[in-house]
């Protein structure tokens, strides 16, 4: 045996997979058990899926060719849908900003204010926009105003959270520099925090608009105006070829808004 071979100790076998801890094992069992229980609970079975697929095929078959007879009315409703989304998103973003400033750690004037603002944002975010739409339809009546208010509240919750996180993640150095020279809280927010968080604000705002456009279609189904109302009527009357036209129009609107926001994102960020 040479000196070199004596000095090299046998390499220990490294297991390919780590043995899970007892805690991890229990978590996995719970997660898998929950999934199986949920699928069983909703009655989703292979037989039911097998029966449903031909029916879906039948509906798709009746959708084509799309009926263009109501295209002018559909396009008008689509425009209303876009207006609802844009108005709701813009109002929501405007109101989200001060609420986010009050909710952001290091920006908020007091911990009690911060907690209250965070709770409000959480409430706006966790209640689905469809529920807000139902509430506003009762409050202000059927039509686009209810949709605008529902989108606005939903966007305050959505953008408020991301705006607050963006403010918290800004570099503390510039904030300290301005505080150290005697700048006010507003000066620090406007001059040190907003410029740093601006790329994140823009990305969140554009994503809010995209989300609002997609969401505003659904809101019409509960009477909050826009093209969703047309879609519901078409399905209720089994006018599947008209529904196909509406779905294609919605798809094109969402596509245009997404492409537009991608372009703006590239230009501004």
């Amino acid at each position: 045996m040479t000196d070199a071979s004596r000095s090299i100790s046998p390499r220990p076998a490294i297991p390919r997979f780590e043995r899970p801890s007892a805690g991890a094992f229990i978590v996995w069992v719970i997660v898998i058990g929950l999934a199986v229980w949920s699928v069983g609970g909703v009655g989703l079975s292979p037989e039911r899926l097998a029966r449903g697929l031909p029916a879906l095929g039948g509906i798709l078959n009746r959708m084509f060719p799309p009926d263009l007879e109501r295209l002018p009315q559909i396009l008008w409703s689509l425009l209303v849908t876009f207006q609802m989304a844009a108005a709701g998103a813009v109002l929501g973003l405007i109101l989200a900003f001060p609420l986010a400033a009050l909710a952001a750690e290091g920006v908020s004037p007091h911990p009690v204010v911060r907690q209250a603002a965070r709770a409000l944002i959480a409430l706006f975010r966790t209640v689905p926009d469809l529920v807000w739409a139902l509430l506003f339809v009762i409050a202000v009546g059927l039509g686009p105003p209810a949709g605008v208010l529902a989108i606005m509240v939903d966007k305050i919750g959505f953008a408020g959270r991301f705006f607050a996180e963006a403010m918290e993640e800004t570099d503390k150095g510039p904030r300290e520099a301005l505080s150290a020279l005697g700048a006010s809280r507003i000066d620090v927010l406007v001059c040190a925090i907003v410029p740093q968080a601006m790329p994140s604000f823009i990305a969140t705002s554009l994503f809010s608009l995209e989300k609002a456009v997609r969401g505003s279609v659904i809101l019409g189904l509960v009477g909050a105006g826009g093209v969703g109302v047309e879609l519901k009527v078409a399905f209720d009357l089994f006018a599947y070829s008209t529904a196909a036209t509406i779905i294609i129009c919605i798809f094109l609107l969402v596509l245009v808004v997404e492409q537009g926001s991608n372009w703006i994102r590239r230009k501004l960020i």
């Binding site: 510039p174 040190a192 740093q196």
Partner: peptide
């Protein structure tokens, strides 16, 4: 680290 406001 100068602590200037970037982007401005």
């Amino acid at each position: 680290k100068h602590n200037l406001v970037p982007r401005l």
